Amino acid sequence: MNSSLREKSYFDQRATQEMEKHLHGVERDVRETMAYACRILAMTEQEAGLAGQISVRSRRPGAYWTLRFGLGFDEATPDDFIEVDRDLHTLTGEGMANPATRFHLWVYDARPDVNAIIHTHSPWASALAAARQPLVISQMDMTPLHDDCAFLADWPGVPIADQEGVIISEAIQDKKAIILAHHGYLTAGVSCEEATYLSVYLERAARMQIRARVFGPLTPVDDELAREAHDYLLKPSIVNATFNYWARQTHGIPPLPTK
């Protein structure tokens, strides 16, 4: 073996430092970020009528920002986001919240680390949900969800009441994502960018799993290697740079008017 070979940790540390130096962030208002997130979800074909939801924890205690009810992800603009309180009364903006976002409150209460939630009935993740199949981490692009995707085996019904929020918040535990049997999925990120990133990769992972099953049983990635990839691919610099790339792929969002 060549004695000059360096440990992987050396390259990890070096890459991390260089990404922090060269992958510059983009300054956006929370509503602009959410509008881009919605367009990304639409671009990746995660629309299902008005069933999809997005929310971001507000700086105001017990409140969150969400897309006003009646709009699809593909038509969201920054002006279409409203701030609502615990009873879903609108505090900022015009319109009403999707009543099904009530369960988001329970996740936010249980998880101080979560600042953004996305829930959709996307085609491939919903196919896993319909088959009551948990995610199997069997390929590198699935690893951001390694040991981070819970599974709720029973559907509690349309999540417009408090009990559904209790069930979902308990089922997700400390994970960043969950597949909801007979329903769809949810991602819970430290930021709107991370929740979006996880959503796109969860839908891709579900598609890959369903396609790969044609060839036989799936072989999970080695646990240690999957954990290493999970931590690497969830570095904020990678998450944010990926989100910004996807944002550039959308048709663009009109900026908020300057005050």
Rank of each mutant, 00 (worst) to 15 (best):
R132K: 12
A15P: 07
R132N: 10
T92N: 13
G252M: 02
L225T: 12
E203H: 04
A125S: 13
H230V: 03
V84T: 03
A195F: 00
P112F: 02
H251I: 14
A100S: 15
A177K: 08
G70P: 04
Y64A: 10
G25C: 12
A97S: 02
K175L: 06
A51R: 03
H22F: 03
A97D: 00
S199E: 05
P123Q: 02
S4H: 08
C38S: 02
K235D: 12
V158C: 06
P255I: 08
H22Q: 13
A212C: 14
L202I: 06
I160G: 11
G72M: 07
F215W: 14
G165C: 04
M140R: 15
V107P: 14
T92A: 10
P99F: 06
T258H: 15
L23C: 10
K259A: 15
C149P: 07
I117F: 01
A229L: 09
W106E: 13
I118E: 02
T258G: 15
I82K: 04
E75D: 07
E32V: 08
A100F: 00
L152Y: 02
L67N: 01
I168H: 09
L71W: 07
G95E: 01
I172R: 09
A212I: 09
H104K: 05
I160R: 13
P257N: 14
D174M: 11
W65E: 02
D147N: 13
A116D: 09
N115Y: 10
T77F: 01
F151L: 08
E47I: 04
Q249T: 13
T44P: 05
D12E: 04
M1A: 13
T219N: 10
C149V: 07
L88E: 00
Q139S: 10
Y232H: 14
I167A: 09
P255H: 13
L202W: 00
F11T: 10
D154Q: 14
A15T: 12
L50T: 02
S9P: 09
M43S: 08
R213M: 09
Y197F: 11
Y245E: 07
H89D: 11
T258N: 15
L91N: 06
D147G: 13
V221S: 02
T196Y: 01
A247W: 06
V221W: 00
A35H: 02
H183E: 05
H121L: 01
T90D: 10
V26A: 14
H24N: 11
S122H: 01
R111A: 05
P257K: 09
H22W: 03
L186T: 15
